[in-house]
Design a protein around this nucleic acid. Structure first.
Lengths: 250, 250
DNA sequence: CGTGATTTTGAGATCATTCAACGGGCGTGG
DNA sequence: CCACGCCCGTTGAATGATCTCAAAATCACG
């Protein structure tokens, strides 16, 4: 759980090598990279390092000076804040293609840790800011992503403040499938990478209540749990009905 | 509580008239206007309308197409979302100088209502976008405000998910004083414009629990309540200790 | 196949909610 | 000017739901 050093290597120089990395990247059309046409993607590659982290490893720590921003290319991250007495709130889970560092200014406002083995593109803040200054499309995309993150945080406020445990869990499952779908990832049998503790810390519950809520959804026939981390959504509309939150049907 | 029509008038033309309005505005240095020097503020005035709304009146409605954005110049607004069964979550209260429309994209994600008599500057989205395109400073300021809003939403997530009622209330009072201070408004005896119901809907509690939490803070000698809507913070450090959330001591 | 971590289930305790009543402030109307 | 009613906030009592504590069951890993 300690901060691990950079183990990455600079991208090899040369336009061919550059265009290959990003061109074949699985999140090319999802992340901020989508703002740049193939011809310009080399600018991003030039300031990029790749990085791998193992489950539980801490990528950035709350309160540390913000020197890097990231794009998650595979795996999953959790963004969390801690209270002195150990209570934890997971503000968000990051999916491949998501950008890390949207809310932060001079210092990181949240801790980022890997939920599962993950790979990222890392950028020095200075480099990214310079690139944003020269690329309006990139800047606009980051701005749009920030607005979306704010919208999702507002949804989360409703979830945390006004929903009952079962409603929270149903909403969480639906929101996760929606995001996975958008990111072009499998979502029919929903693979939950995070632990029950993580889910509890995201929904403002205890692990026992999360587990009981899973059981309730199971008993109602809305989901099936072939494994603890595999959720088969049997009745999506029924799940939406208990969720309370209005989930877009896209 | 119904949507009221525009009762405002276009700004009178002429550079003199323009510069007077904003130049003497009390939130000139707080709002997005601060991004523009006095010489350029006329561009903002040219696309601006002023507007007044009464307590309880609805300015914008969740789900409606986003055609206007606003700067609050006096009073207070609440941003809320509703569940079909009537449950409500107030995501944020807006103070003079705050911008309304940061998170929204094509449609408004939240309802905005006046907590007290309020005045605003109104801008057509099209006009504002055009101005943003021509004024990097304005655009950057809006981006910075969005990031800050996201940070505050994350703080709110912690508050809603992991704090006990008394901690929530203590945090709320401290965060409000901090914001009032930043906005150059009186905050020593804290004037709460919103009702107990609003506070409850913001903290994810019932009004009874809010009231009881006030009483607890009173009994502990941390605050005094000369009136129900006037909070005298007697022991700020004690309040911070109860809050749990780390409140900057600026 | 055993060991430890994770998840699930159970029982009791705690705390916020619900339901109810009381009191104060304010505006209206007599 | 006072009385009345309404809205809002506070307080009380009891319910109920989640949390806490505890144990069993399942899973992951070596």
């Amino acid at each position: 759980m300690s901060v691990i050093p950079f183990t990455s290597a600079r991208c090899r120089p040369g336009p061919q090598a550059h265009s290959e990395i990003c061109a074949r990247c699985s999140v090319r059309q999802l992340s901020i990279c989508a703002a740049l046409p193939d011809d310009d993607i080399g600018q991003l590659e030039a300031i990029m390092r790749t990085r791998t982290i193992a489950p539980g490893d801490r990528l950035i720590e709350e309160g540390a000076p913000r020197r890097h921003v990231f794009t998650l290319t595979s795996g999953m991250l959790r963004l969390s804040s801690d209270l002195p007495d150990g209570r934890r709130q997971i503000g968000d889970f990051l999916l491949p293609g998501d950008y890390l560092g949207l809310a932060d200014d001079k210092i990181y406002a949240q801790t980022a840790e890997a939920v599962m083995p993950s790979t990222l593109c890392s950028f020095a803040v200075k480099d990214m800011e310079a690139l944003m200054a020269s690329s309006p499309a990139l800047r606009d995309r980051l701005y749009a992503l920030t607005r979306r993150a704010l919208q999702e945080a507002r949804e989360s406020q409703m979830m945390l403040g006004r929903l009952a445990p079962v409603e929270k869990l149903a909403s969480f499952l639906l929101l996760l499938t929606r995001r996975l779908q958008r990111h072009g990832q499998p979502h029919n049998p929903l693979a939950l990478s995070m632990s029950r503790t993580d889910i509890a810390d995201h929904l403002g519950l205890t692990i026992e209540t999360v587990s009981r809520s899973f059981t309730k959804l199971k008993i109602q026939g809305l989901i099936a749990l072939p494994e603890a981390h595999l959720v088969d959504i049997r009745d999506r509309n029924g799940l939406i009905a208990v969720a309370g939150l209005s989930i877009d049907e896209d």
